[in-house]
Simulated scan of single mutants.
Amino acid sequence: MWTKISNVKTYNVLGNVTTGDDDELLKLEVKPTADSGSTCRMTSGSSRQASLTGWKADGDDEFLFTVQDTDGDKADKCTLRPTMVDVDDQWTYRPMYLWSQVAYDQKGQILGKTTGGGDPSGNDPNEKPYTPHVRCDWYRVSNADPEGEGTAAVAAAPTAGVHTGACILPLAKRIFIMSKSKDASYLQVIQHIEKALKQDGSTTDNKLTVPPLRNNEAQNPPVKGVLGSEKTKVIPGNWAAPFGTDPDVVEAGDPLVRGPAGETQKKNRPVFLRSFTVSGTSYSNYCRYYFPERFVDPLKKALDPNGEIQCDEYPFASTLQGAFYAKGNYSLLAVGKAHNTGRGSHGAALGSFYTRNRVISKTPFWVWIVP
């Protein structure tokens, strides 16, 4: 962590800048605190006390910290509270926080500004959760496709493309950006997600995605085709949508949340990748029932160079908003395998996003589709 004390000025009672107080002492303190079950200690740097003259001459300091997991949960936070203390209580007896006091909501919109100083130990009831902190984890995260059939092999993956442990700034939002022009190798999936996220009540919104969502549906899976009773689905994860305001109601602007790797897919995918029979015809999964034309030529070859078709789903099977949890508010589309899984696919891009941004279990994130 780096701190910089600059542009230090004092004013007299008339409001004019003065140097008469340049001998007053200020002390820079950094007191790291760790989550229960971990330690966070300073390994380089220390508190520093200097006069105003000294701070004006040199306001730069550097600190290094080491975080260790002690309870085996493999993910812990270290909170850093750099504060400036008036040594002689000439101006204030409260520590001066050296971080922004602006409070934001989950999508980065300004809520207001906190006021006053307080107890820098983390016990101040008025302190907002915007203090500088890092989250460190010791998970072995692979670039392997988190949506693909090979997810179970992640734990046994070779060292190439595998990262064990990293630290991130949790207050930074994790947004999986997909470009319809730059990410043409998985455009089919992007277009599917874009349609799933359209929930404006129009005749072309996601009420036409499958499986259809209707009241009092008599068949499982729901009857295919447009019956006129289809409902708009409330599907979360859209960074471009207004932020949700009700914590008890799922809204379009709510984040997706990644679930435990492997376990979450095992709950979500069997919802639609199961065998069933409708009117005497057997199907191996929902996509073969809803999109039979995509599994035969000429459309099959048009969708995939090898004629391999897979069932894509949104929200992703790796999230706690997937089919198992969605109460019908999810979407499926039969897409070419090359767009869905494997090198250069959407699944590979999502895996890379998870790895680079340390999107581990319980981490919220959004998707954003751009031109």
Rank of each mutant, 00 (worst) to 15 (best):
C311H: 06
G253W: 09
P255I: 04
L273M: 13
P221S: 01
P298Q: 09
E263T: 14
T245R: 07
N306K: 13
D205A: 03
R288G: 10
P305I: 10
L256N: 04
N268A: 02
P292T: 04
I309H: 04
D254V: 03
W239A: 05
S284G: 14
L213G: 03
G228A: 00
A241D: 01
S275P: 03
R274K: 14
P298H: 09
G237N: 05
D304C: 05
L303K: 12
E230W: 04
S229R: 13
P247S: 07
P212W: 07
G244I: 00
Q265P: 01
S202D: 10
K224I: 06
K301E: 12
Y286W: 14
E263G: 05
G253Y: 10
K267W: 04
Q219Y: 13
N216D: 12
Y286L: 11
V226R: 13
Y283D: 03
P247M: 02
A218H: 08
D205M: 06
V210G: 07
F243Q: 14
V296S: 14
G259R: 05
K301H: 13
W239S: 03
G228S: 02
V296M: 10
V250F: 02
S279M: 09
D304W: 05
R258S: 04
K233S: 00
A218W: 09
N285H: 08
I309V: 07
V271W: 03
L213T: 00
D254S: 03
F295V: 01
L273Q: 14
Y290V: 01
K301Y: 12
F272E: 13
P212T: 06
D205T: 05
Y289C: 03
I235C: 00
R214L: 02
V234Q: 12
D254A: 01
P222H: 07
R288M: 12
P221L: 06
V257Y: 13
V271K: 04
G259S: 03
N216F: 08
T209P: 05
P260M: 12
P211E: 07
R294S: 11
G262N: 05
V257T: 13
R288A: 13
S229D: 15
P221Q: 06
E230L: 02
P211S: 08
N238M: 03
P260D: 15
G280S: 03
L303M: 15
L208W: 11
P292N: 07
N215D: 14
E308Q: 14
R274A: 08
V257R: 12
T204N: 15
T232L: 03
N306R: 10
P255T: 03
G262C: 02
Q310T: 13
A218M: 10
E293M: 11
P242E: 09
C311E: 15
S284M: 11
Q265T: 09
N238W: 07
